[in-house]
Design a protein around this nucleic acid. Structure first.
Lengths: 217, 217
DNA sequence: CTCCGATGTATACGGTGTTAACATATGGGG
DNA sequence: CCCCATATGTTAACACCGTATACATCGGAG
């Protein structure tokens, strides 16, 4: 299997997704144009149709690839944590790391982020391995796992668990959107840092028991 | 100024925005295509360039028009409230109506909603009259006004006011996004109704003092 | 070795954004 | 009242995109 440089590409599908992801990185979803991807792969436009039904299929593959990058960012954020010994506290830290990783990725790679969470992502791909990080979990699964751990560790009452993933995602995804596309875009990054903490605080307070925990600090 | 039906259109700009908005209503931002808009206005494609610098400019005008519709939806939601006499409670109700109107609009007109809050809207148009509703306020101003009222009425401590608009918007916008593009899309609308309430509760608890105040009424 | 399926090519079509040159209606100044 | 400058629309063309069809070639299974 010597990598022949003839017109037989080898693994064109992967090459197209890679090129498409590069296009998405600078330019967002609209920039992932089929012909340019094939051009970068050194191939004719029509060749793409041997691996993708149409442009939309390519875009979805790129979207899945971008989501995998989000998952990796979250996993990295969680990997940097140091255990305290207190399972409740650790579970909370892992939960917060999901939000931090999510928003950090959005700000670091806004175009990839926009591509990752396009109006095509529904629950059908919620466990798609192509959307998963090194742990095999998609961003959504990383969140639900963190929430499950909150319950197991006793930090979160079980009756608050239902739908909690949507509450958490709402707050974090909303801030990410505002930070890269909305009014926060031009503001001081420090402010966004603070707002990130406050949003996660807000979500945490909304999900966990202790409303008093929010000190007047 | 009899509306001549000659090739002199009268107010082509308005006609194009109207046609573009109709396109956006079914099909989202990607569907607002310049040539089709001119076609519907009974005019050649090139004519659009007398009123818009390029396709992006038309799209932004349509976006502003869609935002105005969001503002109107919020205003309608607020107009349906009945005063209780308690200024704090009324302020809270008006605040919650912003979120309810926002999410309700997103679910009723998802394509217009996607168009309204495109990655082009930054703070520069935050007071653009084209983005405003009948009260002259844009959706963002309706939110900040509601928050200001919360402070004035004493329902919200002033030190929590800073950045509150971003926290509130984050939660509500995030849920709206999930409801129309995300995993919530295919789920039971009743669940989304409940989550809407819970998100608004969460935001309210995060911003106000009294966590007990949230009535399930 | 031969043949056949998988993969890439060549070419063409319609649609889109955009531009340049041209035409006409409109309204204000001589 | 006329005339012409300007605003507004038309015509025609270009480059690009997604996509389909017919053809060419590689590479392995029999």
């Amino acid at each position: 299997m010597s990598t022949r440089e003839s017109y037989r590409h080898g693994d064109l599908r992967r090459a197209l997704v890679k090129a498409g992801t590069a296009l998405a990185r600078k330019g967002g979803p609209a920039a992932v144009v089929l012909r340019e991807a094939t051009r970068r792969a050194g191939v004719t436009a029509a060749a793409a149709y041997r691996h993708f039904a149409d442009h939309q299929a390519l875009l979805e593959a790129v979207c899945a690839s971008a989501q995998a990058l989000v998952a990796i960012a979250i996993e990295r954020e969680q990997a940097e944590l140091t255990a305290t010994g207190d399972p409740r506290e650790d579970a909370i830290a892992r939960f917060r790391a999901v939000g931090q990783g999510y928003i950090r990725f959005a700000r670091a790679e806004p175009n990839l982020f926009r591509t990752a969470f396009l109006p095509s992502q529904d629950l059908h791909g919620i466990d798609d391995p192509a959307r998963a990080g090194r742990t095999g979990k998609t961003p959504f699964r990383l969140l639900t796992s963190a929430l499950d751990d909150l319950v197991v560790s006793g930090a979160m009452p079980p009756q608050r668990r239902t739908g909690a993933e949507f509450l958490a995602w709402s707050g974090v995804h909303g801030l990410a959107t505002l930070a890269i596309d909305g009014p926060l875009r031009a503001l001081d990054p420090k402010l966004t840092d603070m707002l990130t903490e406050r949003v996660i605080d807000m979500v945490q307070e909304g999900l966990l028991i202790t409303p008093q925990a929010k000190g007047t600090s």
